[in-house]
Design a protein around this nucleic acid. Structure first.
Lengths: 221, 221
DNA sequence: ATTATGTGGAGTAGGTATCTCCCCTTACTC
DNA sequence: GAGTAAGGGGAGATACCTACTCCACATAAT
């Protein structure tokens, strides 16, 4: 929550208008990065906040700094989710819940997806949060395997791939049916059970052919 | 196989060196588009072929024309695969085989993947081939469902999503372990069975943590 | 030898991005 | 309420990138 980087270095508080604008920038960045991904420019973010570019660059020395400030806490949320899931009694449910909730969390935020799966951005706090996540996910996976819910050949390192796969569906269908990833994840999770029963009920109907076509027209590689 | 566009309009054959260079361009395009995707420039393709850009533009009036010439026949191959699969006796196996083989076909070709799932390129012959594919896939899916192999809530429109998901894994891991998609597809297909038994044996071992890290460093959103 | 055909690659035109600079405005202080 | 330090705006500098053209020069075919 503290705005300044140094360890207990309050410097001088920002002027009231400056502080307000700083918040505006962060809010705008959240929305614009969320919709357009990290390729969005600081110009876009500034204008969407109703400010000039100079104002943004005065507050955040570079795009990387802004990204860092934006996404550190969002990554934290995902870590918290994993910690919370570990408290659940049924290990398979814990794994499934974490998967649903973490993807839910980044489903509406393209920037967060990119931060999570790429190392091109976020080298400071973001990277730390990623590191914190590793043992948590490992535990979630190992416990779910031991309990006989998760197939034994699943590896913790398969989770990023899972996020990748669902992320690609989110991107592909976002313009047409932004919730369709739930359908895909349900199928995918059916494939992860150690002792699968009947296929689970899919939470969403399939796309129509015209919707597929529209998705293909909107999506760019 | 005929090089000219018009219906039976042989015009004049190319000079020997020109014909050779035309082939060189196509070969180079196949490789460069395959590795770098459709974002590769005609400059890249020209230089990789050891030629000047002008030569490429003399032969193919625009990037779109070259893409069209490149990928029409590759799309045809996929259609042929579907037709061939429909001849198999076991409908579930037919579906599974087609899925493996078609993904195999585009696994090493990023350009082909982009052509398949985006409408931004390929409006002529490529689009026709896509259209031809629709009823074939629908049949494959419906038969597999009727035979009780494929889960009944699967829709033919889920297949592009499947290709999308596996495609994203291919892209993500290509620098590290280009065959890892097989592991993911195996899990995914387990989730598509109407009456799943034990999980199938995964064809590839999981990534190591360091490999995940490297993949994240190479991959760009 | 002549000539139609082909070639190379610097150059054009038009886009994009990040980030700076400096004149003007605004908020805080006394 | 005047003085001043801080903040704001946004055109523009700089540095890319892309698709595509043009024409002096090279080469194959006749």
């Amino acid at each position: 929550m503290a705005r300044d980087a140094g360890p207990a270095a309050p410097a001088r508080p920002l002027r009231r208008d400056a502080e307000l604008n700083r918040r505006r920038i962060l809010a705008s960045a959240r929305e614009v990065f969320g919709r357009r991904g990290l390729e969005a420019t600081l110009d876009d973010i500034a204008h969407h906040a109703g400010l000039g570019v100079g104002t943004v660059y005065r507050r955040f020395p570079s795009k990387e700094h802004l990204v860092e400030a934006m996404f550190a806490e969002r990554m934290e949320e995902i870590g918290d989710l994993a910690e919370q899931a570990l408290k659940a009694s049924d290990p398979w449910q814990a794994f499934v819940d974490f998967t649903w909730k973490s993807i839910e969390l980044h489903s509406g935020d393209r920037g967060l997806r990119e931060i999570m799966l790429s190392n091109k951005f976020g080298h400071e706090h973001v990277a730390e949060e990623k590191a914190r996540l590793v043992p948590l996910i490992t535990q979630l996976v190992e416990r779910a395997k031991e309990a006989g819910g998760l197939r034994p050949d699943f590896s913790p390192t398969d989770t990023p791939l899972l996020h990748m796969m669902i992320g690609s569906v989110i991107e592909f269908t976002s313009a047409v049916e932004p919730d369709l990833w739930r359908r895909c994840l349900a199928m995918l999770l059916d494939g992860l059970r150690a002792q699968p029963g009947k296929p689970s009920k899919l939470p969403r109907p399939p796309l129509g052919i015209d919707e597929v076509d529209e998705a293909m027209s909107c999506w760019r590689p």
